[in-house]
Write a protein that binds this DNA or RNA. Sequence first.
RNA 1: GCCGGGGUGGGGUAGGUGGUUAUCCUACGGGACUGUGGAUCCCGCGACUCGGGUUCGAAUCUCGGCCCCGGCCCCA
Length: 432
Amino acid sequence: MELQKPRGTRDFLFDEMKERKFVENTMRKVFETYGYQEIKTPIFEDLALFTLKSGEGIIEEIYHFQDKGGRDLALRPELTAPVARIYLNQLQKAPRPIKMYYFGSCFRYERPQAGRFRQFWQFGCELIGGKSPDCEAEIIALAAHCLEELKLEDYQIHLGNLGILRGILTQDGVSADQQDQVMAIIDKGEVEELEKLLKELKLNEESKNILLELIGMQGHREVIPVVQELVKDYPDATKSLEELEELLVMLEAFGFTGYTVNLGIARGLDYYTGTVFEIYVEGLGAQKQISGGGTYNLIEIFGGEKVESTGFAFGFDRVMESLKIQKTQTPLKGRVDVFVAPISTETKLKAFEIAQNLRKNNITTDVELVGRRLKKILSFADNSGARFVVVVGARDLEEDKITLKDMESGDQEQISIENITGVLLDRINTNK
RNA sequence: GCCGGGGUGGGGUAGGUGGUUAUCCUACGGGACUGUGGAUCCCGCGACUCGGGUUCGAAUCUCGGCCCCGGCCCCA
């Protein structure tokens, strides 16, 4: 094998592409139902767009290069930053809230493993300039709606609010930088290490215990009063908790109650502020998360005026994998509905004419281009998934007719050329 | 960057203690069958991941690269 695709990339063949397109189109439909409009941003951007947000360390994981003008560019590792850039460049004065969605591939220089590739796709959205928790409720409902529409069965949507943990830390005088450290460890779920760090930060004993209790807290509505009691002496945390409670009430109105409240969600990113959520599917290997999002403050980091935004993205490849392991069927259509088969070279031109006529009537049609004998054509047509074959032979043509063969039943009949389109449209539509 | 398991025709595989022409299934092309498919039979096409080493001789043993699978790190 001389020519290989780069490490961590994939080719998608016909059937897989059909499945991916089905999922893509389903998501598109749902996002648009909620009033989102699609945007497309460049595959590469200034490297600075990504380092600004995530620090220089991230360069290790970015495909970056210099172009011939010496500009430092990068293949985008994610889509939130480009969307924030678009907002700053062109949409600051657009009527709010702004709802946009995107679908595109991102690139990260990482070691490939289950559910992790060097080129991968994200399908997501951003809602800029709305109000929490209203936006969050709608977005979570949207995410759940997508999965429902895709008929994915087993998944868990976990909700949390970073303001609760941060509220406690702030009140105890833990600086923002130190808080980020704490959140990072919570995100990893390493309790012992967390205790160690909290001791170093000289957090008071009571706050420490509350914090440790909170991050293990998971459940439905009933955890709210429990948390309320725990944080009652922390006004900021209490305020965030109220926001979370409000979110749950709103979610009910949006018709979604299948969530798990999980205060241990921290997200790896520093710019998330309040509500966060993640969606998990079991059995995906080390990468069980198929989606994540929340409310963040990225635009301010980029130097814009403070405007709240909420967003989330599906790891598209992981959604595909989830559907696969849960054996969810996506409809697979054949390549064409009709195959036009000339019996000999004498009838070839007539066959082209007929095929073209069908196509102009929106019937997916293939016509023999290899000059094979009829037997082979029928076999090939069958493999193509064609439901009908139009056999074009000299004998029929003398009467201005063709033979229409139904590949499922094997039945065939003579039909006059002028009626083919009508007959086929009729049968294809009633057969659906 | 680290650890473990792998890599044989287009796809799926057998062989692995070194030794003739590398097995089988499938797909593909042609024919038996010059206007009727998914059946049968015949023929054909086509592979040891790459490079070095050991050896009279390597798909097989050995070292390294590349790639795949899984895990660690990381995960915007």
